[in-house]
Amino acid sequence: MPAAIEIKNLQKSYEDTVALRGIDLTIEPGEFYGLLGPNGAGKTTTIGIITGLVKLESGSVSVFGKDIIRDYRFTRSKIGVSPQEFTSDWFFSIEKLLIFQAGYYGIPKNLAQPRVDEVMKKLGLYEKRDDKIRFLSGGMKRRFMIAKSLVNDPDILILDEPTAGVDVELRRMLWEYLQELHEKGKTILLTTHYIEEAEKLCGRVSIINDGKIATEGAPHELIRSLGKGSIEVQLTGWQASDGGKLNGLSFTYEPGEGDGRLSFSVDDPEKELPQVVELVSRNGCHIHEVKITKSNLEDVFVALTGREINK
């Protein structure tokens, strides 16, 4: 089966800036994939090219094996998109707009209506169906944007910052809903600023910075490859040296009043913990407290880009 989305050497320049410097990306059917990166990294441009909002300059994109330019009718019918910026409208109710949206996808009204009703109910928009967008709250607008991306029952769902500016409750609800859609077999590509979101939802992520992919992999693999975990043991009775290596694990010792603190630097703290505890006990020490520090995706991000994602 061809990849859900395959991007090859995508490059794009705007008047005075280079937005993409050769992006290669393959997303398999059924994946939940995250694009992480600071503002201006090229996430929205990449999504724009896949969906037809941004002109392709160089490189190629295919969706289920079909080229997005030559076979745009096929590729666009497979994709649902929720852009980052809210749309507005002065004339029509949100229900009407969703029916229109389905219509552009070639779905006649009688088939669109049950689908639109279902999506509105699922996202808690049904009570507001007669309202116009401009009278909706920010959270409701976000729900509407997501509803709109689902009216054509797409195989691939592309969400650009779906939880930007929404409250915690709605964020959790959207996470649950996205997981449900993923379990039903939809391929999901999302961009986000929220590291927690990517760690929680995505099977694989790419960190994109300055128009290039800095790294790609499963979140836990990326964290492990960074190898920056530690185990701290608060103890009494430590007799050995101030620091060095114990069974190949490097450590430091800080004496304190009555007791002291051993810090082990390890790749995977959860895996190394039993060994550390055993080593320390074997030295006749009494352990008071153990503290584990693990890297997260944010640390991976900082290590790769030299800046924090939200800065």
């Binding site: 969906t51 019918s77 910026e85 507005s88 002065w90 552009y104 996808y105």
Partner: peptide, 18 residues
């Protein structure tokens, strides 16, 4: 113009309409 200013044009451009 309104569709451009209200970001509505993108709703059409992403669909399989020529």
């Amino acid at each position: 113009l309104q569709m451009k200013l209200l970001q509505q044009m993108q709703d059409m451009l992403i669909t399989p309409m020529s």
